[in-house]
Amino acid sequence: MLGLAETLATAAAIFGIFMSGCRHVRSAIYLYAVQTALVASIAFVYSASEHTGPALNISLAVVLAKAVGIPFFLGWVVKRLDVRTDSGAFLPVPLSMHVSIALFATSYYLASSLDGAAGTFSAAAGATASISLVFTGLLFMMTRRLAISQIIGFLTMENGIYLLGLHETRGMPVIVEMGVLLDVLAAVMIAGVIVFRIKKNFKHIDVTRLTGLNEQ
């Protein structure tokens, strides 16, 4: 029997998988936003139902910043840079979606072996979803061309880690949580600025073509 939180977590992981199969950058950002909103709503569920998770206002801050603010910012960046599609560098996009399904299955076995989540699927569902999100984010970063996709991949990974934190520990101490959030926001901002600069200097934001510094 899946609880509400686990169902939401699984849904977030599934949206992550869809994101990995998305060639259009803007759609990927939308899917990221949905996935983040789901992750953040889990924090709500924990704080409301179990009184063990982070406080409601923290969850609200997370939702506002990550599920609304960052997608808006990324959407603005994408519009300004006029990039649309990221066709993928090493794996065709549909295939990378199926690889992430395989990684989802792998996450299940990893999660079952993690202590405190023994046996049933329902117990391992939260951990499965979070590990799968980490994998999906990593895969997204590695198999995409655009700098902006790397940011999205990083954020997805961070979502997975946050979800794992929620699931395993019911939330880190508040001040740490806020610090992490601040760091992530700053990282996205700085990365956004650098993406603009890459576009200006290189006329593209294809990181697989940033090879000026490779060892001769």
């Binding site: 970063m141 700098a147 790397q150 990083f154 990282a187 700085i190 990365a191 650098i194 600069r197 890459i198 200097n201 290189f202 990181v207 940033l210 000026g212 510094l213």
Partner: peptide, 11 residues
Amino acid sequence: HAIEATWKYLI
């Protein structure tokens, strides 16, 4: 080069 290095560093 500096931008490329920064991007790699950051990511």
